[in-house]
Amino acid sequence: MTLLHWTLPLPAGYRRDDVIAFHSRDAQGVAEQVTANGLRKGIVLQGLPVVLDVAFTHDGAVCQADIDGNDNTVTALQTHLHDALLNIVGLRIDPQPFALLAASDPLLAPLIRSNPGLRIVQSASPFEALTWAIIGQQINLPFAIALRRSFILQAGRAHSSGVWCYPEARDVARLSVEELTSRKFSRAKAETVLRLARLVNEGELSLALPPCGDVTAISQALLAVKGIGPWSVNYALLRGYGYADCSLHGDVAIRAALQKLLGEVTKPDMARTQHWLRQYAPHRSMAAAHLWASLHAKNIPPAAE
């Protein structure tokens, strides 16, 4: 085992409890384990099981990567590890530009005031975000979490510490449709997950973001994969790449939150939601985050006069 250590500085007002809550959705914690002050996350990186251990202090995240490999095999992982850590602690998207953009907005400014410092926590990798989007779409959250757990136990690997690690594409590509459907996957979900994994594993689909950060090519490539639609792509851009301008107009919860915000009897349709969100470009991801959060808010301060 090889240990790597470093500390990520945290911005003022950082909300560690949000991060811990995000990673505690699966009460059984096969690949994520949380405490009051930190979390452990298991992932597979370039064939090696890795556990990322994060302990929060008042101004930093003290991080340790426990890698089931020797020093000669981990050097190339350091950039991937740093990226994964930025994702899982929610440091990829800065919430301040959106807060400034919407500071005088009569509808969203009250949401921002009720949730100052709200951040978007991500999956450790684009592949994890994509597979979770496929697994969780159009089913209730408890069932989706159970499917995800089963998926990790089927395709993932156990770290030497006992924590299970979320699989890479090469691990998933070895599975058959029947292995997934035997664990309550629908055939359509199983086929889409395996299709994605095999394309990535065989090098026909790259999930690497270009140096310029333009997501257009990745979006088009993903939309060309049978079974992956605009909602899954936008979710992957949000949770996998930390893209700041995702339009989540196809998300039912976003439309429900907008209905509540506008005080209307019915949900706005996707076209109207897309048009409404466009005013917050290039920060639509944070607009979506505040809309999601508003569904659970009890008291929202009124708009400024």
Rank of each mutant, 00 (worst) to 15 (best):
F151N: 09
L147C: 05
E128A: 10
D105F: 03
L141Q: 05
A102R: 09
V121T: 11
S150A: 14
S125Y: 00
S104L: 12
G136M: 01
I152C: 15
A103Q: 13
S114I: 08
L100P: 05
Q138C: 12
E128Q: 09
L101Q: 15
D105V: 02
P126N: 00
L118V: 05
A124M: 00
A103M: 04
S123V: 00
L141M: 08
I134K: 09
A99I: 07
G156V: 11
Q138I: 10
L101F: 01
R113A: 13
G136H: 04
A133D: 01
A144F: 02
F151V: 07
R113S: 11
A155P: 06
P97T: 03
S150H: 12
A99H: 08
I112L: 08
S104C: 09
A129P: 06
L108Y: 05
P116Y: 12
R157I: 04
R149H: 11
D105T: 00
I134M: 08
A124T: 01
P95S: 07
P110Q: 07
A158R: 15
G156A: 13
I120W: 00
L100K: 14
L153E: 15
I112K: 02
A99N: 12
A99S: 14
R148F: 03
Q154K: 03
L153M: 15
I112V: 10
S125A: 01
S123D: 14
R119A: 13
R157K: 15
I134N: 09
N140C: 05
L111Q: 00
S123T: 08
L153D: 11
P106C: 00
E128T: 06
A109F: 06
L107Y: 15
G156R: 13
G156T: 14
L108H: 08
F98A: 05
L153N: 13
Q137R: 14
A109Y: 08
L101N: 03
L147A: 05
L100E: 15
I145Y: 02
P126A: 04
A124D: 04
V121D: 04
I145K: 04
T131Q: 01
R157Q: 15
P110R: 08
L118Y: 08
F98I: 00
I139W: 11
P116W: 12
I135Y: 07
F151E: 04
D105K: 04
R149D: 10
A133C: 01
Q154R: 08
N140I: 06
S150G: 14
R148H: 10
Q137Y: 14
A109H: 05
N140K: 04
I135R: 04
Q154L: 11
N115R: 13
P106A: 05
R148N: 03
R119W: 10
P95K: 09
I134F: 10
L141R: 03
Q154M: 02
R113G: 10
G136Y: 06
F151M: 07
L107M: 14
I135F: 07
A99F: 03
L147Q: 07
F143K: 01
A129I: 06
Q122T: 11
P97D: 00
R119S: 11
W132A: 03
P116M: 12
R113H: 14
P110T: 09
A109Q: 11
F151C: 01
L147I: 06
L100M: 10
F127S: 10
F98Y: 10
R157P: 04
P126H: 03
S104V: 10
A144D: 03
A103F: 03
G136K: 05
V121M: 02
A129L: 07
S125N: 02
F143H: 05
R149Y: 09
